[in-house]
Write a protein that binds this DNA or RNA. Structure first.
Lengths: 210, 210, 210, 210
DNA sequence: CATGAATGAGGCTTCATTCAT
DNA sequence: AATGAATGAAGCCTCATTCAT
């Protein structure tokens, strides 16, 4: 029957409802300062209900990161597989893709960066953790493909493609964090887009074989 | 009198004693998981005493970051002012300086990056906050000087030197965080030094006027 | 009409279905650690349905104890009324009856003993409580009858039969609890049957007029 | 200095203060229904302070049981070692000793019996658990010694002394539980002492070689 | 009747900070 | 100055019970 499906959909909708609320609160206060009650109030659900959909605070947070990682991977795959573009164009497209990912959910991505390395803090179920690691690995892999392509074509310098991908990714995440931290001091100015553009240009020039 | 001075020195020594202990514990457990009691035990002082030298947990942590920032600034100034080196050499020297800073206290610097933007978490006194911001600004400024020098000499591309400095700094901090997070998954491999080297090379190539 | 009856029977069947499931879970986890959801899953019914048949968790538990008490009373009556046996034989038969009751549902009887006196925990409806008390009283009464018989026949020492019944019952329940608690430490050894046998023999000797 | 000692004594006094309060509340409401806040209010200390002296609710409860077990063991040793008494007299003395233990803290002993077998419920540190098990074992051992003595002297029937000790102990604990549960129904009447007396007499007669 | 999602009160525990000694 | 016991607010999470469908 459609009844099963409807229930399924409603359940999914609830999950989303919670995630939307959680995103707002996490973005506003960060992971540590956000309480489950904050989220319950924002979502207009009881705290108990939150635990019906997410095992604990950390998995709720992780689910938000997960969504971003999914989106990131999709965008990267899209760029990587684009048959019309050459490696140089793809690097440029990469910049836009990464910026879009950031733009899709600016504050959660920042929180995510904060937590991504402090896994000691996180008490995620191994399954979720593995999935997230897998997704990260894949994302880096997609970027590496582009570098590999350029190297194979003799356009890019002969460096380890994964190391190049790590560098580019680090530059991106580092900039997001850094510009965000500057914006706290001076909220009016947002240089992320322009600095990102410059950094990517420099990077693109830097890997080109002279 | 000498008595005053001695007291002053003793007080400073105590501060250092606490900071050394705090560094060990923060490095081991991270900011959030570290308790004041952990630090009191490590320092062999009572929790009450901790509060005689530091207003609260956050200022104690900040003081550690502060020390790193001081060291960073000194190293950067050193490179920047080196009369014998050309801009290109200075960029290379920058890499070593930054790596040394990281090496001086690897884990605290990581913790610092985690917290640097999430000032929602931090409840620092404005004075300390200002000092830290000032120091960061100066550090970026020193790096920018190098870029300016290269631009003036027509060796580097004509980009905003502060934006270049931000990019380089972001790349550095991003890599530290990223490689650290990878090491959690696979603790045996430490690619920071080599990836950092590659990234700086790429950056150096990228800003050179062709 | 027959329809009414069928409904009645079906209702009773559902009750039994729940009780069977509840027994399994309570036996496994004890009263406090068992959740209504555990029971709902075991019974393949929803939690809501559980509340259609039992006012609350405590009455569901009580209903299980009730069933045991019923069985106990039946067995005791059977022994007590046995026309062929003399009082001494009946005491021996008592041992088997009590052990059978225990064997019928070892873990629930243990849980029951745990809760029987801590009525602070139990929030039973007075009606159920009264019924249970009545059944206990009757059980003790049946045992007392045997003692009375022996006293009347001049075979047993002249003691208050109810006090003797209390003593015997206490010895039985005490042993069940105690041997169970020992089995937690050393699960391989089960001395209940043999120790029970010894204890009953001692008791039987002890009440015999020399 | 005496200063250290005084502090030590004060600390011990605090512990006692908490235990006294806890005993009152546990006795009144039982383990499950007692909250740490109840105890904090009764002791006029904050909940936090409770955790300074006891790792958790369960260890606080265990410490009460522990005290009883200590007292029990001392009393049993005393009886067992009494050089003037013969085995039969010692059995009689045992009754008084056990009753005194019960009288020392009637309600906690009842709670203790409730929990002693449901160790699934208890989350004690292995150390404490071991100590308690050890103490129980020793207590049973002391009783067994008396039986052994009687057997060696040819006064008692030739049964396993440990099994006899288990039986006697079970009879005692069973009676305490059972009489307590009867008192809930009819609080005015307290038959424990007299029934205990009868039961011990029966037991004493029962183990005597005819 | 049956469902099971939603509720929300309430429990245990932690820990930064204070303050009497 | 140093201590460290005491505080108590606050957080996370569980679970018996209800109620709209």
């Amino acid at each position: 029957m459609g009844i099963e499906e409807r229930k399924e959909r409603e359940k999914e909708r609830r999950r989303q409802q919670i995630m939307v609320a959680a995103k707002r609160v996490f973005s506003d206060k960060g992971f540590a300062k956000t309480t489950m009650e904050d989220i319950s109030k924002e979502s207009e659900l009881s705290t108990g209900t939150l635990y019906l959909y997410f095992k604990n605070k950390e998995e709720l947070f992780a689910s938000l990161s997960f969504r971003i990682l999914q989106y990131l991977l999709i965008r990267l795959e899209h760029v990587s597989k684009e048959p019309e573009m050459g490696p140089e164009e793809k690097i440029r497209a990469l910049k836009d893709a990464l910026y879009d990912v950031y733009d899709f959910d600016p504050l959660i991505i920042i929180n995510m960066f904060h937590l991504q390395s402090s896994e000691t803090l996180m008490n995620l179920s191994p399954k979720i953790l593995d999935e997230m690691k897998d997704m990260s690995r894949k994302s880096i892999g997609e970027m590496a493909k582009i570098f590999q392509e350029g190297i194979d074509q003799g356009i890019f310098i002969d460096a380890h493609p994964l190391a190049l991908a790590d560098s580019l990714w680090s530059m991106f995440s580092g900039l997001v964090l850094w510009e965000e931290s500057k914006r706290i001091i001076n909220p009016k100015k947002d240089f992320l887009k322009s600095t990102l553009s410059l950094a990517f240009d420099v990077f693109a020039r830097g890997i080109k074989k002279s």
